[in-house]
């Protein structure tokens, strides 16, 4: 009888430990680091894509610096929008 009691208490302690581990994992696991890396490139990529589109249009319509500048700022806006959206998605999950 004593042995069974001992085993049950030990089981409970082990279960608690697993629970705590899971809690810690969900807060600071590798996934959050992945999210951080994800957001930083999203901002840059949109700016690059916007500027490239502007540059291509400039070559096409012969309006050298004008469209590049316009599309650069639109790219910045798109980048911020991207970051804002992924931040919102993260917030929803928490």
């Amino acid at each position: 009888m004593k042995k069974i009691k001992e085993i049950t208490t030990r089981l409970e302690i082990a279960k608690k430990k697993i629970k705590n581990l899971k809690k810690n994992n969900s807060e600071s696991n590798a996934a959050s680091l992945g999210k951080a890396l994800k957001i930083s490139t999203e901002l840059v990529a949109a700016v690059v894509v916007g500027s490239t589109i502007g540059y291509l249009f400039d070559n096409w319509f012969d309006t050298k610096p004008l469209l590049t500048i316009c599309f650069f700022f639109m790219g910045v806006a798109a980048g911020i929008l991207n970051v804002f959206r992924s931040a919102k998605k993260m917030h929803k999950k928490i």
């Binding site: 490139t41 990529a45 690059v48 798109a78 980048g79």
Partner: peptide, 20 residues
């Protein structure tokens, strides 16, 4: 304006995915 921004944001997906 918003549609252009959304299209840029959509086109930036493969760039950000590969550059990362």
């Amino acid at each position: 304006l918003i549609i252009i921004i959304e299209i840029i944001s959509y086109l930036s997906r493969p760039v950000s995915l590969s550059v990362r």
